[in-house]
Computed example of a mutant assay.
Amino acid sequence: MTVKRKERPVKTLALGRPPTVQKPRSISRKATRALINTIHQLEKKKAQAVAKGDRAAEAAADSEIASLGGIQKYQQASLQGQRNDRGGDSSRVLMEWLKPKFSASGLTADGSVHMLEVGALSTTNECSKSGFFDMERIDLNSQGDGILQQDFMKRPLPTDDTQTFDIISLSLVLNFVPDAPGRGDMLLRTLDFLKQPDMTETHDAFPCLFLVLPAPCVTNSRYMDEPLLERIMNALGYVKTNSKITQKLVYYLWRRTLRVSIKVPTFKKAELRSGSTRNNFSIVLRGLTA
Rank of each mutant, 00 (worst) to 15 (best):
V3Y: 03
K6N: 07
A14V: 08
A14I: 11
P18K: 07
T20A: 13
K23V: 04
P24Y: 06
R25E: 12
I27D: 07
Q41H: 12
K46A: 04
A49W: 05
A51F: 06
R55W: 11
E58G: 05
E58A: 11
A59S: 03
D62M: 13
S63A: 08
I65S: 01
G69W: 02
G69N: 02
S78D: 11
S78Y: 12
R86F: 15
A104N: 09
S105N: 11
L116P: 00
N125Y: 01
S128H: 04
F132Q: 00
M135E: 10
R137S: 05
L140M: 08
D145T: 12
K154V: 04
D160W: 06
F165A: 00
A180Q: 01
G182C: 02
T190C: 09
L191H: 07
D192N: 08
L194C: 06
P197D: 09
H203M: 03
D204I: 05
C208Q: 15
L213M: 12
P216K: 10
V218S: 06
L229C: 13
L229W: 07
E230R: 12
R231T: 04
I232V: 08
M233S: 14
M233P: 01
N234V: 14
A235L: 03
G237N: 11
G237Q: 09
Y238P: 05
S243E: 13
K244F: 09
I245P: 00
W254P: 12
R255Y: 15
R256A: 06
L258S: 04
V260D: 14
T266P: 09
F267E: 01
K269R: 08
A270T: 13
L272I: 05
L272F: 11
L272K: 04
R273A: 07
S276K: 13
S276C: 02
S282R: 02
L285I: 05
T289L: 14
